[in-house]
């Protein structure tokens, strides 16, 4: 069964102004209020009885935020991050930490990180590297061998409103489990991230609101003083695919995809234009390999 979500009112960004229902006279304050109420009503209808009132968290990347409902990651909701394949685990972890950094800036409290010590994920995230994205002092790390314990821990964390965010690195998660997590997140308004392992099948069924696929991409080359591109690794680049965007624009058919770059110096994420931008004078054959 296909569920179609009527979503014409959901996005508030300027990009939606071309939709006929939204052509309104901005000068009238009464209509603005009415519109807000109307949007809230639609939201409530769309998202079930437990409509989370938690504000959404913008990723501060305008191109991505424009696609997300309410201009950011939904606050009390479950979001999934999947590495392109097992070897892209480092990049997926990097993107998870980036998202956490945005959440940590928006919300107060501790971050609960659950790590299942089994399967492909034998080691917990490495704190010295996380320090670039979030303060590891704010992270409470919980490890467990059993999937049930890990899921229980996530749920307990999500029920505690004083927690800023809950991150789970759990490989085997059933649909029912994701539904439980989603409901717990909706209730408390605590955002939940689920870092899954790469699956062989195309897409597992899940109750998550968004699902991101992260693949590492060749980094930007840096130029030396003589104009030659250097051997070292420049800005970290990831390919992001928004595989699932519940409550997003239903009219959109293609999977949104971006090439993003994380710069440690600036400490933020930015979308890189896909056209090959070659610095003036740089030899073309170097880039081609």
């Amino acid at each position: 069964m296909t569920i179609i979500f009527p979503n014409a009112f959901a996005p508030s960004s300027a990009s939606r102004d071309d939709a006929p229902v939204l052509v309104l006279d901005r000068a009238e304050p009464g209509r603005e209020d009415e519109l807000r109420r109307l949007r809230e009503t639609v939201r409530r209808i769309e998202r079930g009885s437990v409509a989370s009132t938690a504000p959404s968290i913008p990723l501060d990347v305008p191109e991505i935020d424009a696609v997300l409902p309410d201009g950011g990651l939904a606050g009390g909701a479950l979001h999934e991050i999947v590495p392109g394949d097992a070897a892209h685990d480092g990049a997926a972890l990097g993107f998870t930490a980036t998202v956490l950094g945005r959440i940590a800036a928006a919300r107060r409290g501790q971050i609960l990180w659950i790590h299942r010590q089994a399967g492909a994920l034998t080691a917990p995230p490495y704190a010295p590297a996380l320090a670039a994205f979030i303060d590891p002092a704010r992270v409470i790390l919980a490890s467990s061998r059993r999937v049930e314990d890990a899921l229980w821990t996530m749920e307990e964390g999500l029920r505690c409103g004083a927690i800023a965010a809950v991150v789970g690195e759990i490989d085997k998660v059933e649909l029912a489990a994701t539904r439980r997590l989603q409901l717990a997140a909706e209730k408390s308004g605590v955002p939940a991230l689920l870092l899954r392992v790469a699956e062989k099948k195309s897409a597992a069924i899940s109750a998550a609101v968004t699902r991101w696929r992260v693949t590492s991409a060749p980094s930007r080359s840096r130029l030396g003083a003589d104009g030659e591109s250097l051997d070292d690794i420049g800005g970290l680049r990831w390919r992001l695919d928004l595989l699932r965007n519940r409550f997003g624009d239903p009219a959109r058919t293609e999977t949104p995809s971006w090439l993003v770059e994380w710069t440690n110096e600036k400490g933020h994420l930015a979308v890189v234009s896909e056209t090959v931008s070659r610095p003036h004078g740089a030899p073309a054959q170097r880039l081609a390999g």
């Binding site: 972890l93 490495y126 010295p128 670039a132």
Partner: peptide, 20 residues
């Protein structure tokens, strides 16, 4: 708070996941 940032600053690049 901030101790981690200080520690990370004088180290080279580190992996997000260190194999056990």
């Amino acid at each position: 708070a901030g101790l981690w940032t200080k520690v990370a600053a004088y180290k080279g690049p580190r992996p997000t996941r260190l194999l056990a």
